[in-house]
Amino acid sequence: MKGTYDIRIENARVQFKLTLTRSLTVIRGNSATGKSTLVGMVAEYAQDGQASGITLSSARPCVVLAGRSWKRDLEETKGSFVFLDEGNTFTRTEEFAKAVRNSDNYYVLVTRESLPMLPYSVEEVYELRNSTSRYPGIRKYYTHARRMYTQIPHITNPQTVIVEDSNSGYEFFRALCEHSEIECTSAHGKGNVLAKLRACASERILIIADGAEFGPQMEAVLELAQRKGAGLFLPESFEWLILCSGLVRDSEIPKILENPSAYVESREYFSWERFFTSLLVERTQGTYLHYDKARLNPAYLASRERSLVEAQVQQTGIQASPMTDL
């Protein structure tokens, strides 16, 4: 499945609105915001349709996955929006992650567990926000999903940069940092960023991670970053930065970047990070910019090429002097 979809579900007392943009959406936040009510209404509509008294507006079927038969049920579910409430032990298993990876559905997970097997985006973690009826005399609650991480701390001119990546992205940022005399270290994976941040004694720390897959780590890293005064820079991915820079001349790339959801087939790409990597590899194949995720092609560090990508990270304050080959 690909595309962006709006869902509206309501009964006499409450209306929920949410937009699904990627294959994985996570809803968490405070207790008593209506998360379980939402999933309950989806289940009731799936069971009884309009006879439930619930109105559902959705371009695709909405179903709820629960219980011991989840695997069999999921095998029979295609092209649907699958909702899961908290309390399902299977959501944190590798078996579930594998089943999700190979299916043609979008998933809405109501859970506070980090679920590191599922590479969801920091952009797709939501909390439910309520407002009361806009009409006098009608007591109804309107609830919409709002992005959870809208206040990401930024810093400029860091003393230390922690890069989640250990491959091409790290090599690029390390080269920039060396030139700016900034300490740059790799966390060697998303799961190690929190430990790196804990251990870092610098006063001005910047964390660079792929936002497209950093959802499971975000809550704890953000909590500590706020307490240590550290900043976060979370582009979709390093490959996305290159594609955004205009370095790769391709008339289709700007259209894709404008609306990735219309191009990312969920069955093929578990996250947008993997899609952007594949796109960059494909569009640079056979050119001097041929991209290898494992090792940075030195062409990206030449002055012109580097400065184009560097412009995408200007807000971080890590940049080499202009027109210098690194």
């Binding site: 007392r13 409450v14 405070n30 207790s31 008593a32 915001t33 209506g34 998360k35 379980s36 009510t37 908290e86 309390g87 309520n130 609650y141």
Partner: peptide, 16 residues
């Protein structure tokens, strides 16, 4: 409940 009207304890939030 301000949202759901008069409810049974089973309709309280998961947290409470």
């Amino acid at each position: 409940s301000p949202v759901l009207g008069k409810i049974a304890p089973t309709q309280l939030s998961g947290g409470v």
